[in-house]
Amino acid sequence: MFSNTSQSYGLPARALHWLTALLILSAIALGLYAEDLPRETSAQAETLKSLYSLHKTIGVAAFFTALLRILWALTQPKPAPLHPERKAETTAAEVVHWALYGAMLIMPLSGWIMHAAESGFAPILWPFGQDLPLVPKAEALAHSAKAVHKLSALVLYGSVGLHVAGALKHALIDRDATLARMTRGVAAGGPPLPHGVASPLVALALWAGVIGVGLTLPQDTPAAPAPALSEATVSEGNWQVSEGNLAFSVIQMGAAVEGSLPNWTATIRYDEISGTGDVRVEIDTTALRLGSVTDQAKGPEFFDTFTHPTAVFEATLTRDTDAAHLAQGTLSLRGAVQPVTLPFTLEIDGDTARMRGETALDRRDFGMGAGYTDEATVGFTVIVAVDLTATRAD
């Protein structure tokens, strides 16, 4: 039997029901298992990457399967309940059913939005992509999507538990054909009943609350996006940074991960006539952001921000040709001091200067990721980019 009737479920409805259940339960199991795994070494990180990639891919597949299942259900007759006289039980079952429909869509979709909005590891596998239309890379959006994802998981756990409990009650206590209609397509029950709007409205209100709470949960207070010089720093330099961005990127699991170090101060002395000067930059590494792997990047294997909360770059400035300049000096990071050359362009218009530069560092020079010896896990090269605007202080 292909189509539903008022007494039975057709083959497509039953197949989509069990396939959706299999995919969702598999994604949940993988996600919960990965949450508790250690992630200190490259081998552990590779295992986590594989588990989370499967978790995300299966979750996206579950979303499309559930969407197809719901669309099919809306175009088919719904078998009538076997005990229509039990009004409260029937209404409760319908509310749980509609809540479950919402969970099957909102939970994987919010996870996909979170993935698309943040930089991190564990790509979604083919044929699904990493990005979504109209979803920008934004930490605030990723935070909200993550909150909705976690809250919807609670609704999913609850609705699945109640759904299973109801099915077992029908099979073991009532001993009716409710479960058999979904497993074997058994026909049972009476004529179709009119569908009310109360149950879907209750479920809709529940999901409005879940999404509303998720979108309004406070985010960790981010570090100031534009570094400002202290009074002592201003008095020592003749240029004061008014706004700026210190970013870095690294290849992780084959994909570029973008990060930032938003808290830093700079003492800049520069003479326009000779094209020379010097700079000292102090960077608060505890404020770094690196998408979904921020905590891992702050850990002892990488930046070790607890032991080394500050990095320092000191360099002399020289002009090469026209706007092209070099900052040549040393970077003290994670207890190691290494020579660094930063090529940059400098454009001065009156009392405003715009500086942009980029250089490549090797994380191994600073003892980062000693356990990650394979570039397939974390690349050796880290690209550092600086973009700032400064105003004349003297």
Rank of each mutant, 00 (worst) to 15 (best):
L326H: 14
L67Y: 02
L217Y: 11
P200T: 07
A29T: 15
A138V: 04
H17W: 03
L74W: 10
A247R: 10
I124V: 15
R14M: 09
P218T: 08
G277L: 03
L48A: 04
S292G: 13
W239P: 00
A66S: 09
K150I: 09
V293Q: 08
Y270K: 07
G350D: 14
T381S: 05
R364F: 02
D278Q: 12
P222Y: 08
S242W: 03
T345H: 01
Q7F: 04
W207N: 03
D320F: 04
V95S: 06
E35M: 12
A92E: 08
A99C: 14
V279C: 08
T391G: 10
A208F: 12
P77Y: 04
Y9E: 00
R334H: 13
L172F: 15
G275H: 06
L32M: 14
S260F: 03
L151I: 07
Q219V: 05
P133Y: 05
N263Q: 13
Q328F: 02
G329P: 06
F64P: 02
V160F: 11
T316P: 05
N4C: 06
P38R: 04
A256P: 04
V197R: 13
V312K: 04
A187H: 04
M182N: 05
S235C: 04
A205L: 15
A385E: 14
Q44Y: 05
G31F: 08
L193H: 05
V60C: 10
A73Y: 00
T391I: 06
L172T: 10
V384F: 09
S144Q: 15
R356D: 05
H83K: 00
D362G: 08
Q44W: 00
G185T: 01
P84H: 06
G190M: 02
R14T: 01
P227I: 00
I106D: 01
V186M: 03
L16V: 07
Q44T: 02
G31Q: 12
E118R: 11
L67R: 07
G209E: 06
F313W: 11
P192L: 02
G335S: 07
T276C: 02
I70W: 13
T377M: 10
I113F: 09
I70K: 13
A147V: 01
R86N: 12
I124C: 12
L151T: 00
M104W: 03
L141S: 06
A255K: 15
M355I: 15
L346I: 10
A370S: 14
V382S: 06
A27C: 04
L388Y: 02
V164P: 07
I383E: 02
G102N: 01
T352G: 06
Q296K: 15
